[in-house]
């Protein structure tokens, strides 16, 4: 029965195709009692960097029409403290842990982080966050001020360097802030990524007209929530035409119906993000919703739904 929902991300088999997005589920302990954590397909952690990061100044978030902006700035305790303090807590859930990693100064930090995670069995996969819009990258490889995920060559170089450092499945998280997301997705596939996750937040801005200041201290911030869903679905559909590796779809998924859109567009799995803040049970409700949908439509496996969009001619 569970095989109906199970999918593979590289060598990682997950019992159901519903995960929670990096940065929206804390380190899972925040959700204890609020949702049945062990039912999740996988948990993607808050992005971890080599050194601890204090994060950006306040205000860091604001509400926007059917969405929100955030510029947290990858606040995290650093990889060593994360392994020591957070992994044991995450491990207890029994759910595969996908650790999101990013560099904050030098791209060599990506393989260094991956090596530190190699020994930890509970880590089912590694997600490369090359698309966070809220940290200033000084990476030579991507050119000053650009995201790695905005450059196919830079994306390829990072994936290759991490591929050499670990045998864990690699998920490359892509940015929607590009002209053609399929180019970046193909670069990630070609460089050895086991899956791609899309989309990260759209870069946005909101202004307090009384103060004539940006509502977020950093000015620019990442837009998430239902407001970005159609953009995300479109990008999943575009990428699905061009690559063979699994797509993990995300961007404003709030409920079963919005999750199904992503499968039909080409996702093998989906991830619930902003919805966790509003309805902590969103992801588990979606799991039962998908089961029900498959049953009532007599579909044997979620895999049959992936990319099943009927195009209008």
């Amino acid at each position: 029965m569970p095989s109906k929902l199970s999918v593979n991300i590289g060598r990682l088999r997950i019992e159901n195709p519903v995960m929670v997005c990096s940065g929206t589920f804390g380190y899972a302990e925040e959700f204890r009692g609020l949702t049945d954590i062990k039912k999740l397909g996988a948990i993607v952690t808050k992005t971890i960097t080599l050194r601890a990061r204090a994060g950006n100044p306040m205000p860091r978030t604001c509400e926007t029409p059917a969405g929100m902006l955030n510029s947290i700035g990858l606040e995290n305790p650093g990889i060593d403290k994360f392994i020591k303090e957070k992994i044991p807590v995450l491990e207890k859930s029994g759910v595969p842990i996908i650790v999101s990693i990013a560099s904050d100064q030098d791209i060599d930090e990506f393989p260094a982080l991956a090596k530190k995670l190699n020994k930890i069995n509970a880590v089912g996969a590694i997600e490369l966050n090359i698309s966070c819009p809220n940290v200033k990258h000084a990476h030579k490889v991507s050119g000053g001020g650009r995201l790695i995920a905005q450059d196919a060559q830079a994306t390829s170089d990072i994936v290759r360097s991490v591929r050499k450092a670990t045998r864990k499945p690699l998920i490359t998280k892509l940015s929607p802030n590009v002209t053609d997301i399929t180019e970046i997705a193909m670069a990630a596939e070609e460089a050895g990524s086991d899956a791609v996750a899309l989309v990260n937040t759209l870069i946005g801005m909101s202004i307090d007209v009384v103060a004539r200041r940006p509502k977020i201290a950093q000015g620019l911030a990442g837009l998430s929530g239902p407001a970005i869903r159609p953009v995300a679905v479109r990008m999943v559909w575009e990428v699905y035409q061009k690559i063979k590796i699994p797509i993990i779809g995300m961007g404003g998924i709030m409920d079963t119906e919005s999750a199904l859109e992503f499968f039909i567009a080409g996702s093998s799995a989906i991830s619930v993000g902003t919805a966790n803040f509003i309805n902590p049970r969103a992801a588990t409700e979606i799991i039962s919703g998908i089961e029900k949908y498959l049953r009532s439509n007599k579909i044997d496996s979620i895999k049959e739904l992936t990319g099943s969009l009927k195009c209008r001619s």
């Binding site: 929206t24 925040e30 994060g55 604001c62 606040e75 902590p280």
Partner: peptide, 15 residues
């Protein structure tokens, strides 16, 4: 504070 979640997950309301 303006909060997005209220239970410690989003790190949006730090002081």
């Amino acid at each position: 504070a303006h909060m997005s979640c209220g239970f410690g997950a989003c790190l949006g309301c730090a002081v």
